[in-house]
């Protein structure tokens, strides 16, 4: 168990280092930063001043080392756009993004797992096909469109839920549903496939031969073995929700990290871009590590390796 975790942790550290380099390199590759900061009306002198002030005239390795050292101590520099420390900007927006991602994942899991189990138990039936169809429609539906439909339906017509902002907890429900829809199809199919395989296995026949109740056979004996790929993919999906929810943040007027990333990329606010890319990569790495740990808890055979 210790060796397994140690190996995963070393791998995670290496991935983080790589991302650090890539995040830095990408912003430098996207054009002359001094020119874009100075703006279209700036003179050559202005550009030169900016280049000197921001340290952009120094060799790249120097710039990188300085940035990495500062980042390690939590200092990501200042945003050109907001004229404020990047760390503070992200700290303000992170709770919204995390709240959004967690509500999206919760709704997705609460929908996908029971439907996947039902589908697997009635494989080939009308119910199974209906559930498959719903998953397909969910996958095909553009999230901005679904978001607008939900806003019109539940927000404006029925007036049950707020249509924008997260001043109260129920503000997370509609955007959470929209986010969940993109994750449900994959989670549902994985649950279904895993459960079909598990239910056909010899140990399930044994469990039934022992006279266990259907609930115990399905939820205890089959689901545990079927849940490992679901855990891994759910972790990736959560990472995706945390980083890729720009469209939904825009539709529901939520100013989270996704919105900040989009804004800073379009305005070439490179300290923010670097920090957000690094943050999201760290989140992915962290989530994968958590998923590995959860799988090691679920499957004793992994702990030995």
């Amino acid at each position: 168990m210790v060796r397994f975790l140690l190996r995963r942790a070393i791998l995670a550290a290496m991935v983080t280092l790589t991302v650090l380099v890539v995040a830095f390199a990408l912003t430098r590759l996207s054009g002359d930063l001094a020119v874009s900061i100075a703006g279209p009306n700036a003179t050559a002198e202005d550009v030169a001043t900016i280049r000197k002030n921001y340290g952009l005239d120094r060799p790249l390795p120097m710039q990188f080392l300085e940035w990495a050292a500062n980042a390690a101590s939590g200092d990501f520099g200042r945003s050109y756009l907001y004229r404020a420390p990047v760390a503070g900007l992200i700290k303000d927006r992170l709770p919204i993004t995390i709240g959004l991602g967690l509500s999206g994942l919760t709704i997705a899991l609460l929908t996908a797992i029971p439907l996947g189990i039902l589908s697997a138990m009635r494989e080939g039936s009308l119910l199974d096909r209906a559930i498959g169809l719903i998953a397909l429609i969910g996958q095909a539906m553009p999230s901005f469109w679904l978001g607008l439909v939900l806003i019109i339906g539940f927000g404006l017509k029925l007036q049950w839920l707020p249509i924008s902002g997260v001043d109260t907890w129920d503000g997370y429900i509609l955007p959470g549903i929209v986010l969940a829809f993109s994750a449900i199809p994959a989670l549902l199919r994985l649950t279904r496939a895993g459960m079909i395989e598990a239910l056909a296995s010899d140990y399930i026949r044994t469990a039934r031969a022992k006279g266990l109740s259907t609930a115990s056979v399905v939820l205890k004996h089959a689901l545990r073995n079927a849940s490992m790929p679901v855990v891994s993919v759910a972790a990736v999906q959560l990472g995706f929700m945390l980083g890729g929810s720009i469209v939904i943040e825009t539709v529901f007027a939520l100013h989270g990290v996704g919105y900040l990333a989009w804004e800073s990329i379009s305005k070439n606010d490179f300290p923010v871009v670097q920090a957000v890319v690094l943050l999201l990569a760290m989140i992915y790495v962290g989530l994968t590590l958590i998923a590995d740990m959860m799988n090691a808890v679920l499957d004793p055979r992994l702990r030995a390796g």
Partner: peptide, 8 residues
């Protein structure tokens, strides 16, 4: 294969 790999 008749015993569940996930339980003691």
């Amino acid at each position: 294969t008749s015993l569940n790999p996930a339980y003691t």
